[in-house]
């Protein structure tokens, strides 16, 4: 179980990105975070694995306080949290296999890993992970030779390699076309359902939210302004969805985001 208590993030330039955010996520839940651009979704997700240092508040995961973990503990926590990014964040010049294997970095011997040596067992798992996301034939290509959808699959395979207990997905399909969105979210959902992995995912399109979320929180200007269960979100109309997004909602009405 993940408990976020009174989380506040103020960036160095004074921007308040999160204001006193509190919520809980049970194991096996698929929590979707919605909110306007700049409402603090990324900041929230990044605070959980401390890519961003929270200013105030606590994040407890099965009772362990992530916010006060020392660097060694933090690495142990991070290796159990897979992260999927909007822009995939693969190491472009490395091969697909190396990118997938990098998911094991928190587990393997650091010295042999820096010369890209991984245990045979990990190499086999990497192959299987790529098979699972359907791009085993691309294993030897360089990451930047793949299409966007393929790159995101590599991102998912990398997260799979971590044998994660939690997935943080920051707009995982925002830079992919709608058809691919379901494929990618399908993989994440499978991980969520088969292995009871907790998923925290930010999304923009109502239909996707309705299809995948088991619970939803809405952010606006760094505050939680909406909490909804699976049933509530299913019943939600476009108009209500827009309400969460506030006055500027018209721009998102077609289910398309304006950047």
């Amino acid at each position: 179980m993940l408990e976020v208590k009174n989380l506040t993030k103020i960036y160095e330039d004074g921007t308040v990105a999160l204001r006193d955010v509190s919520f809980q996520v049970e194991d096996g839940e698929f929590l979707v975070i919605i909110g306007l651009s700049g409402s603090g979704k990324s900041t929230l997700l990044r605070c959980i694995n401390r890519l961003v240092e929270p200013t105030e508040g606590e994040i407890l995961w099965d009772g362990e306080d992530i916010t006060s973990a020392d660097p060694a503990q933090l690495r142990k926590i991070r290796r159990q949290i897979g992260m999927i990014f909007q822009h995939f964040n693969l190491v472009k010049r490395l091969s697909v296999t190396s990118n997938v294997l990098s998911g094991r970095l928190g587990y393997v011997n650091p010295w042999s890993s820096i010369i890209h040596r991984f245990p045979q067992r990990d190499r086999e798992t990497a192959g299987k992970a790529l098979e699972k996301v359907g791009i085993a034939d691309q294993a030897h290509k360089r990451a930047d030779e793949l299409s966007g959808g393929q790159q995101q699959r590599v991102g998912i395979a990398r997260a799979l390699m971590q044998e994660p207990r939690m997935i943080l997905a920051d707009e995982p399909v925002a830079s992919l076309d709608p058809v691919l969105a379901h494929t990618i979210l399908g993989y994440i959902e499978r991980m969520n359902q088969e292995s009871k992995i907790m998923v925290l995912c930010s999304l923009h399109y109502l239909d996707l939210v309705q299809r995948y979320a088991t619970r939803v929180i809405g952010l606006r200007e760094g505050r939680i302004v909406y909490r909804g269960t699976r049933e509530e979100i299913r019943k939600m109309t476009d108009e209500e969805f827009k309400e969460i997004y506030g006055e500027e909602a018209e721009r998102i009405s077609a289910g398309r985001r304006e950047e």
Binding site: R75, I77, L94, S102, G155
Partner: peptide, 27 residues
């Protein structure tokens, strides 16, 4: 981006440099 992604896997500093920084610098 890749630096954050590698850090997020629980990699330490040297691993992050070798996996995310060096490959970007080498070419």
């Amino acid at each position: 981006g890749p630096i954050e992604a590698i850090q997020a896997t629980g990699a330490n500093r040297i691993q992050t440099i070798m996996f995310a920084v060096v490959p970007q610098m080498i070419s």
